[in-house]
Amino acid sequence: MDVPPGLAGPPGDEVQVPAVVTWLAAGAALRPVWHNMLGGLTYEIPGRCYVKWAPPGVDLAPEAERLAWAAPFVTVPTLLEHGADSDGSWLVTAPLPGRNAVENRWLAEPERAVEAVGAGLRALHDALPVAECPFSWDVATRRARIQNPDPHRFGLTLDEALRILDDPPEADRLVVCHGDACVPNTLLDDDGRCCGHVDLGSLGVADRWADLAAATWSTIWNYGPGHEHRLLDAYGVAPDPERQFFYRLLWDLT
């Protein structure tokens, strides 16, 4: 099975800064941080905050709700404000300590980074209370949001892929999933330990393999092959090829 090309990364100079981000900066310097596949942008106003912006059609209000809910249990960015206008929506959050797990320091030490991501994901799953979570990220919720009806990388036709998604495996363990547990969304301290999580816009209750399938897959995109078992070992779970395949297919189509 092929893996997707690089899905996101720092924005290039050709990306125009949204007007609201310029307004929020109020003349301060802006450092571009991230550009995702949906056209979203994240900027740092050094020493003050981060501004995450999304174009029309991508509402950041659900992420604001999830950040506020998760904050008492795990280390996530503190929400300072959020809003929307005809050009898009935005979140302003306080900075967290630590470095993105795909910064150069950790690209040079992928084994340590992968172990920290796995341990950090397990800690998040253990800390967030399923019974109190008002959000869902289950198969039915995601199945209704197919955006990419092209499962060619799995060697399937669309009809074949949809039949697979209509028959999900029994849940291994229900947890409050991160919802985008790809390695760039984990922050690491200088000692190589997880110290926070970002981009929780899809956080919700689901089988833990919904997160694990994406997290292990993203080790290939970001560090190259050979690290998936290390992440699972650090998390504390044996490989599960059936659930991993199912949730990667669901991820790719939605």
Rank of each mutant, 00 (worst) to 15 (best):
A108H: 13
E115F: 00
G236A: 05
H82V: 06
P151D: 14
T78N: 08
G201Y: 11
D167C: 10
V237A: 15
Q244E: 13
H82Q: 15
L253C: 06
L79H: 06
E109P: 00
L249S: 07
V237H: 10
P18D: 11
P10D: 04
D190H: 03
V139C: 05
P241H: 04
P11W: 00
A116H: 04
W106S: 11
T216A: 08
G39R: 08
E242A: 15
R122T: 07
R173I: 06
L79F: 05
D199N: 13
A215N: 10
L80W: 03
A213E: 05
A123F: 01
T254Y: 04
N222S: 11
E160M: 03
V114M: 10
D159K: 09
W69S: 04
F245N: 10
V183K: 07
V21K: 11
E228R: 15
C177R: 13
P239F: 07
A101Y: 01
D252T: 13
L165W: 06
H35F: 10
D240A: 13
G155S: 11
L91K: 02
V33I: 15
V17Q: 08
D2P: 15
W209H: 05
C177F: 13
E115H: 02
V15H: 15
N104S: 13
D87V: 00
D85S: 04
V102E: 01
A123P: 01
G204K: 13
N148C: 08
W251S: 10
H227F: 15
V92G: 11
D252P: 00
R208H: 14
A54P: 00
L30H: 12
V237W: 03
G47Y: 09
K52A: 04
G57H: 01
I146W: 06
L231A: 07
V117I: 11
D87N: 12
R248H: 05
A215W: 01
V33N: 02
Q244G: 02
E115M: 09
P149E: 00
W53C: 00
T219Q: 04
S202K: 13
E14L: 08
H152C: 08
D191N: 05
A119G: 12
H125K: 07
I146H: 09
V130R: 08
G39M: 07
D233V: 03
A119V: 02
L107Q: 14
R143T: 02
T93W: 02
D252K: 06
G39K: 11
R48C: 09
D172H: 12
G39E: 03
L38I: 00
V20Q: 14
A19Y: 05
V21G: 09
E242V: 13
A101T: 03
P129T: 03
P95R: 04
A144H: 09
L174E: 14
W209Q: 08
E81R: 14
A94N: 09
E14C: 01
E228K: 13
